[in-house]
Design a protein around this nucleic acid. Sequence first.
RNA 1: GUCUCCAUCGUCUAGGGGUCUAGGACACCGGGUUUUCAUCCCGGCAACAGGGGUUCGAAUCCCCUUGGAGAUGCCA
Length: 525
Amino acid sequence: MSVRVRFAPSPTGQVHIGNIRAAIFNWLFARHEGGNFLLRIEDTDLQRSTPEAIAVLLEVMRWLELDFDEEPLYQSSQRQKHLEAAEKLREQGHAYGDDKEADSQALVFRIPWEAEKLCEGVKNLGPVQMKLHPERPLQISHKGLQFAGLSKKGAPVHDSACLAGFKDLQVRDAEGRIIFTLQEHLDEVLREGRQFMLENAAELHFTRRSISYVDQVKGEMSKPLDSMRDLVILRSDGSPVFHLANVVDDITQRVSHIIRGDDHVENTFRHLFLFACLDAKPPVYAHLPMIVNASGKPYSKRDGDAFVGDFRNKGFLPQALFNYLSLLGWSPGDDREKMSRDELVEAFSLQRCLRSSAQMDQVKLAALNGLYIAEMELSEFIAQCREFVQRLPWGKDLDEDYFRRVCAFMQSRLKRFADVEQWQYFFVEDYVKDEKFCQKQLSDENTLKALSLLHDKLAVLNEFTAEHIEACIHEVTSEADIRQGRLNQPIRAAITGISTGAGIYETMELLGAERSIKRLKLSGK
RNA sequence: GUCUCCAUCGUCUAGGGGUCUAGGACACCGGGUUUUCAUCCCGGCAACAGGGGUUCGAAUCCCCUUGGAGAUGCCA
């Protein structure tokens, strides 16, 4: 069977980092297996799914080079198929109408009573008992059971569950007498829609069944049917719900493996039954751990910057983001971190995916990004820098040759392109200064005297090169009785206004004699 | 509440019973530079959540506790 995986986002105008990570893993898996990577746009929410939102999604995928193999499938185009599937389920007795409201078209999928006949992963777990709270009568119908269970402390817990959860059900009263046996009434309940209300039900005896599957990353997963409920597949207005649409589309696209976020594990148990009742072989599942924010919580609006576009705007390279994200919840098993796409494709496997959630670390991402920046072709690097610098108020008409030299000088140190903002002092005189730092460095009387002395020496320096500048500084420090190196930070404060940067001698050389000397003079008082 | 998962340095991770006095990376600290810096090189700090088992031997297997996440929608 050939591998076919899909990325199935709903276009909301922005692409979340967790979503794109799922896309990356799907892509990596498809490429590793030599299979197909499909895109399905779940655009049934017509409010949010605008052409603009879809354009944003496609642009993000293009940027990260997540190329897909077939024409994208728009879920909205599949509505007829969804409705046909719903009708088929109804005809075969796997779904029933919700008759709460007269004109409702809502349809509910029933976890099938003959679960083990239909679905491969259903197991018999043996007999169990469950105590009930007398507060509420037990209600039994083809829609399942409604009752009040018992919490650990004995408090009533209102609950409901699908009928299929209670195979061989016997209901007993407080004295232990059997007051109801499901097997005797099964046909009435299931086919005639008869409902039973049992006032004095105290204990449920039944055979517990579970549905299980082998998750490619989490291993064997299972859930008892008595903790499941029937699920709505058509809304009152007749529109298909996610569960139905998703499963039907996966069948249509012949998806072989579903690789998605952890938050879908519960759905998987239900989808397995849907596949079975639609006569389809279920796909192989793999659930990826979630990505969480710096405080270990899932990303929320408060965190803001969890969208792919934000990373792009900060000047992260797509290769770096791709590489970093692939390392969240997966590793190649050796010490490699910076890996090319080809290496990632080669090394990727679902079995090496982790089961626990991972925290995004922007600092580490920036470090990796810096590695990618450092190895860029200079011309390409300059082009990127220009793009970012042009967004800044001072970055419009810069001297071309000088700009190139600054770029070449700073390339090895830049981590994110948005940080070109800090190069301001190379280009304008009213650059932003770190006042606190400057004040600290430029307050000592002796230091200021030394700077003034340096100014005078540099003013008559023949060759304004790093080497000569350094020699000059050495002279000044010994004349002013300042320890070697002690004057460097004050000079940096005077020249750049900020505490960090490239080597100060080279910086001055690049800046040129005129500007360097002028700034030294300005700081002299 | 109930159900389903998860748990190694601050963070990302290696680890599939002995080779673990637990390895790498980012961050941090120190050195190279008798203290310039965001590059580079070298070094250091730092973790098996707790408690019980199983075993000659457990970070690795089992159970419990604690903590965390997800689900419990006519959202996706």
